[in-house]
């Protein structure tokens, strides 16, 4: 529906609109309110309360410890490192999305053949279980029988075979690469917005005889700032959810070099003993980070309202 149509519909609607349907609205919102009350409001309160105690997963005999859990958390170099790693991995996947992802989206929109096949291949990694994707990487990169090393040896390039998962630098690279496999969503965002691109400047560039790569870089790329933002924020937020990527490829190792926030929390959640208060404190910190990014996203992407 076009904007003008919608506007006239709204105008026509206004005079007959009833005062306020807040009672009806409340009824319609009951399911939402129930779910939010339990899983977000109650949960946050529960976390806050638990974060000041020392308690095991049975939640019995909680001992009040004040801010001790937060002190421990913020003094733990592994936690700080996991946040930093998280941001670095997100950053690397963002760079990949803004370059490779953008190119793929434009290239697929220029009328290539077998487009569907390409889309399936680029989307599969992000739509199959992440645990599975990471495990496939893990299996492929095993030092002794992994497909990558055996292939290199078969090609007489045995010197290039590496301990991919046990060398800190290489493991970090491996996790970065897996994160770069998750750019399917950005490709979709670009594709959707490319279809809605104003055509005038493209036509002008075509008349000037600019080549395709030139047009991609100098004409289309600058026109998609709001899409770039959507891509950046969605990957940043996604990275906090992607604990399986690390868990099933490097398990955070070697040492703690590839730990991310999700895998750090998972590790403590599965460890025995009275660590639940500590996990709750870490959860509160992660929640705050996620909500802040979410808030930033809302403020920044607001102008989109006017555009669409």
């Amino acid at each position: 529906m076009t904007a003008t149509k919608r506007m006239t519909a709204a105008k026509r609607h206004r005079p007959v609109r009833r005062r306020s349907d807040w009672k009806v609205a409340l009824i319609f919102l009951v399911p939402l309110i129930v779910m939010y009350a339990i899983y977000f409001v109650y949960s946050t309160g529960f976390l806050a309360r638990t974060s000041f105690t020392k308690v095991s997963i049975t939640f019995f005999n909680a001992v009040d410890v004040g801010w001790e859990n937060y002190r421990l958390l913020l003094g733990d170099p592994v936690f700080l490192r996991s946040i930093l790693n998280n941001l670095v991995f997100a950053g690397i996947s963002i760079v990949a999305a803004l370059t490779i992802g953008f190119f793929i989206a434009v290239a697929l929109s220029t009328g290539v053949r077998a487009k569907r096949v390409f889309y399936v291949l680029f989307l599969l990694p992000v739509l199959m279980p992440l645990s599975l994707l990471a495990t496939l990487f893990n299996s492929m990169l095993q030092q002794r029988y992994g497909v990558l090393n055996t292939t290199l040896e078969a090609l007489g390039l045995g010197a290039l075979a590496q301990p991919w998962l046990t060398d800190p630098g290489l493991a970090f690279g491996v996790v970065s690469v897996i994160f770069c496999f998750l750019i399917g969503l950005p490709i979709l965002y670009y594709t959707a917005d490319l279809a809605a691109l104003p055509t005038e400047s493209l036509e002008a560039a075509l008349l000037d005889g600019a080549g395709p790569f030139r047009i991609m870089r100098s004409v289309i790329y600058p026109m998609m700032t709001s899409t770039h933002l959507t891509v950046i924020l969605s990957l940043l937020l996604g990275s906090f959810r992607a604990l399986e990527v690390v868990l099933f490829s490097t398990q955070g190792g070697p040492g703690d070099t590839t730990e991310i926030v999700g895998s750090y929390l998972y590790g403590w959640s599965t460890s025995a003993g009275p660590t639940v208060g500590f996990v709750a404190a870490a959860s509160i910190v992660v929640l705050i980070i996620a909500l802040v990014i979410s808030l930033v996203q809302m403020v920044i992407t607001r102008p989109r309202k006017g555009r669409k």
């Binding site: 319609f28 529960f46 638990t50 937020l237 959640s269 959860s283």
Partner: peptide, 29 residues
């Protein structure tokens, strides 16, 4: 529906778009 505070409520709903599951693991447990 028209009701007071609709947009604010909606924004509040969206705020939770980004909650990572692992962060509410303890209460969900």
């Amino acid at each position: 529906l028209e009701f007071p505070g609709r947009e604010v409520t909606f924004s509040a709903v969206l705020l939770f778009l980004a909650v990572p599951g692992i962060a509410i693991l303890v209460p969900v447990y």
